[in-house]
Design a binder for these strands. Structure first.
Lengths: 354, 354
DNA sequence: GTGAAAGCGCTAACAC
DNA sequence: GTGTTAGCGCTTTCAC
């Protein structure tokens, strides 16, 4: 009875990898046949031969070497994902959806974090390209790619996520953020009668100006609302916390707040509650993203929700299916009504975990 | 003036990859010299030759093929990371630290999610191994590896993270969870005078029984506290929410709560607040993990903090440095006092984002 | 239905 | 200091 390491030791007796050649030898066939069996083609193999080869593979504990295959085929079935901040709940959910979508299509994801630094981002793109990834998923300020250095035709196909609008020669995916902002401010004005709405947002958003600022102003104009303070802080819990603290300390807290990310909204809620501000009575708020993290603040966040699952699926189709001509893909963001705006409480969707 | 694609088209005129051979030819040297220049060895190269080679590389836009290098060297500089749930704040923070630690050492991470399913986990390990990863970082119930199938000597070095104790033949890393639980319950008893403390935990924890249950019982015995209800729900916001709802609905809410993960604690806080329970007055709580997400609930979570950064650094050292004999590495978990236990409020560490 | 052999792009031992 | 060359493990064309 052969053990997995029979005949797989080198002259010094060390364990050696079992290769396709070992299998071929043991099965008394050529290496080509082993390939045909493994890949079910491109040439036919007699059933009994195939069976014998499979038996030998099992016996020897043969494991195909993916690297060798990749070198030969020129394809790694790997995609690179560059994120700014994996802890931001929106990025985290999108990353999770992307991983699922990739996995469903037989791809693996190499994930790297840029911390929003352009130089790091460039370095990571170069590194991943050198690793022969079959595609690149980039989440970064879309503006950064708007005037790209002349693109190298050997670059892997790329999709820019979290992008405000078209970028020449690129597939881009993003929310219809202006529309989401408009819906948020309109809801605050029309349903909850708020007349002065501020905005919390971050630097280097989807574009300049960020469409959420545009949408906020649009809705303000349309509903004769007064423009409240515009606070720019980092895209994080801490950023939101700081923004809200400043509003409180300077006594400029408006009638209502539109917060451009769930990450910031969580910090805003914390700061407001800490200061004894009643949400939604004194300062209702609507956020942007609609992540599950926003379901678990108290009060839970009413949010303009980005359809992360659909975005991820499209991103993967773009990278793994037939090439289509680059264009922008905008996704609608619908308002998810929870209680931070003043709507009646709804318990979190607790039936399932996801 | 050569452009990046000069001489890099095949007979059909399609863009071809620039290889080391193209560089060698254009520079009038052998391929070996190009290698020596790139790798700065193993043989010396005349400065002027090296300069010429570098110039040609730049001119041609040469990009080394990582796959080919990996095949030759038998090392991919890639590590596999298998997580159960990327949205759990503790896993997310650990994953972020691991990515940083990997990046600092020149490694990339292939990240995959098992959703806690043992079969998926096994499949992912096999896939990643086939991809010739240089090491595997596994976050899963340690018990699952306790009686491993006879290990294949060709498996990549592996470290089990979030592990309660030693597993034969494996490097394992984990928190001293029993100690953390003890500290939590003791703090609730001694500092805040709580006499009846319940526990919220999840299924398939660090071990069976989970050391947090053991520590909780230890402290209960040591401080003559009454054992409150033991609630088992999933390791998620939703799980925590459900646990707290059940406690409220059945009128069994204890004097204080030790919640075994920040993910659950966020859900517990939400449910308690929603039901009008005053935290910390009516039901103080201490959680386990000490993630940054726990800084932004209101009240913020007092937590037994796991040192994720240190754990990640050790994991990477174990995988990338000289082989040491497998053993368990336990990390101390210290209590981070915030306000959910009843200690005086402290604002979140807002100075920096990380 | 099967096998021989070229080659994917790179490294490094060995010869000069 | 530089060049030649034999692989790394796999796929696939082409002959038989």
């Amino acid at each position: 009875m052969a053990t997995p390491t029979d005949g797989t030791r080198d002259d010094a007796g060390r364990v050696r990898r079992v290769t396709r050649a070992d299998v071929a030898r043991a099965a008394g066939v050529s290496t080509a046949v082993v390939s045909y069996v493994m890949n079910d083609g491109p040439r036919p193999v007699a059933p009994e031969t195939a069976e014998r080869v499979r038996a030998v593979m099992a016996e020897l504990g043969y494991r195909p070497n993916f690297t060798a295959r990749a070198l030969n085929l020129g394809t790694t079935h790997t995609l690179g994902l560059v994120l700014q901040d994996t802890l931001n709940p929106f990025f985290a959910e999108l990353a999770q959806s992307l991983e699922r979508a990739a996995s469903a299509r037989g791809y693996h994801l190499v994930v790297a974090e840029s911390h929003g630094d352009p130089a790091t981002e460039q370095r990571l793109v170069a590194e991943l390209t050198g690793r022969q990834v079959d595609g690149l998923l980039l989440m970064s300020s879309g503006d950064r790619w708007r005037d790209p250095a002349p693109r190298d035709p050997r670059d892997p196909p790329t999709v820019l996520l979290d992008c405000a609008g078209p970028v020449a020669g690129r597939h881009t995916i993003g929310p219809d953020a202006a529309d989401g902002a408009r819906a948020a401010v309109t809801h605050l004005a029309q349903t909850h009668g708020r007349r002065r709405t501020g905005l919390v947002i971050g630097p280097d958003g989807l574009a300049s100006p960020d469409p959420r600022i545009v949408g906020w102003r649009d809705a303000i104009a349309a509903h004769r609302v007064i423009e409240g303070p515009l606070m720019i802080e980092t895209w994080s819990n801490a950023g939101g916390y700081r923004a809200a603290r400043r509003l409180i300390e300077t006594g400029t807290l408006p009638d209502a707040l539109f917060v451009s990310s769930d990450a910031q909204a969580i910090g805003v809620v914390r700061a407001l509650l800490e200061a004894g501000v009643d949400i939604p009575r004194e300062c209702p708020l609507v956020s942007f993203d609609g992540t599950r993290a926003g379901e678990y603040t108290w009060p839970a966040l009413t949010s303009a929700r980005q359809p992360v699952g659909e975005m991820a699926d499209l991103a993967l189709d773009l990278l793994t299916s037939e090439r289509s001509t680059p264009r922008h893909h905008a996704f609608p963001v619908g308002l998810v009504l929870r209680e931070s705006c003043g709507c009646p409480p709804t318990p979190p969707s607790v039936a399932s975990d996801h």
